[in-house]
């Protein structure tokens, strides 16, 4: 595979600003990287000599480890920084933290932050590549990409697919990245949630809204089920988790009404018995673990594409890790 134009530019802060071609390039680039993770020696020297900082202001297991595997399998040198036990907890500002890291001559920052716009903020202030690993309720672009890769693996296409995002869209960066990416590639996108968990003007993002999950199931080819954070109940957005499960939960009984084969995605971590029942999560419709596997490949693709001077990918993949770097 040739490194094809258009390139991604310096940063990946969200899918909203990407063209359909750019998104396709990332998904296509992820394909050969899937194979790398299946090898005995899971390593290609694409990013040898590059230094990447994983700057996680918010707790994360899956995303942080997925990025770290992606970086290590590309032979980058990585450092993890969490908010607890670092200068951040001593009151250092985001921009000072980043500039100090820059002063140690890093190449890339993967940032997870509780504030929407934090990745954009950082990207506009430091010369290193910045990858958004989730900023508040704004975007989580690599999650959106891995969801799309998983859909494409199964259906062979994105265009024309009917995908419904079910759950707490209001607070979800995963929902926004999925909406932007899927709409860009021509999927039909819907959201389904209690009205209290839908943000104002969501329809203007090009999605339809279902009030009841039964309608969503009847319409969809795939459901992307969002985690309902337990604090949403304390905040009063839903009266009880029990009612949420009864009215909006994805259960085996509900899926039996689906007119066609239905794919179930979930970005994790799951609340079994709340937004999704175990027999669905572990059932034949579920591709939840495939998503996790694809996550590493998509992140390898993004890291590779953002590194402007990386060697040719096809050569690297063929060489099995022995090529030039």
């Amino acid at each position: 595979m040739k490194r094809s134009a258009p390139t991604l530019g310096k940063d990946l802060t969200g899918l909203e600003s990407l063209s359909p071609e750019q998104i396709r390039v990332i998904l296509d680039t992820a394909e050969p990287f899937k194979e790398v993770s299946e090898r005995q020696i899971k390593k290609v020297p694409v990013l040898r000599g590059k230094t990447i900082v994983n700057l996680f202001f918010e707790a994360s297991t899956r995303t942080r480890i997925s990025f770290e595997f992606a970086e290590k399998r590309l032979a980058a040198d990585t450092v993890n920084i969490g908010a607890v036990g670092s200068s951040v907890s001593k009151g250092e500002t985001l921009v000072d933290t980043a500039r100090n890291l820059e002063a140690m001559r890093i190449d890339m920052v993967v940032i997870r932050h509780w504030s929407a716009g934090a990745a954009h903020f950082l990207a506009s202030r430091i010369p290193s590549n910045v990858i958004n690993a989730g900023d508040g309720a704004h975007e989580h672009p690599t999650q959106g990409l891995l969801d799309m890769l998983t859909l494409r693996d199964h259906f062979g296409r994105i265009e024309g697919l009917k995908v419904c995002i079910v759950g707490d869209v209001l607070h979800s960066r995963v929902a926004r990245s999925n909406i932007y990416g899927l709409v860009a590639l021509g999927a039909k996108v819907a959201v389904c949630a209690p009205r209290t968990l839908l943000p104002a003007g969501i329809e203007e993002l090009g999605v339809r809204v279902f009030g009841r999950v039964e309608q969503a199931i009847e319409w969809s080819d795939a459901l992307n089920v969002l985690r309902l954070q337990l604090e949403r109940m304390q905040d009063g957005f839903v009266p009880s988790l029990r009612e949420y499960n009864r009215v909006f939960g994805i259960t085996r009984e509900r899926l039996e009404w689906a007119p066609r084969e239905m794919l179930i995605l979930h970005p994790g971590p799951m609340n079994r018995g709340v937004e999704i029942d175990s027999d669905v999560a572990d059932g034949p419709h579920s591709v939840i673990l495939r998503q996790v596997t694809n996550g590493v490949a998509v992140r390898m693709a993004v890291l590779y594409l953002l590194t402007g001077d990386a060697p040719d990918l096809a050569e690297m993949a063929r060489s099995g890790g022995a090529g030039r770097a």
Partner: peptide, 15 residues
């Protein structure tokens, strides 16, 4: 302001 821009940006709005 709570509206489509706050929704796009993922920021909490004041209605």
């Amino acid at each position: 302001h709570e509206g489509v821009v706050s929704t796009r940006l993922g920021l909490k709005g004041k209605p």
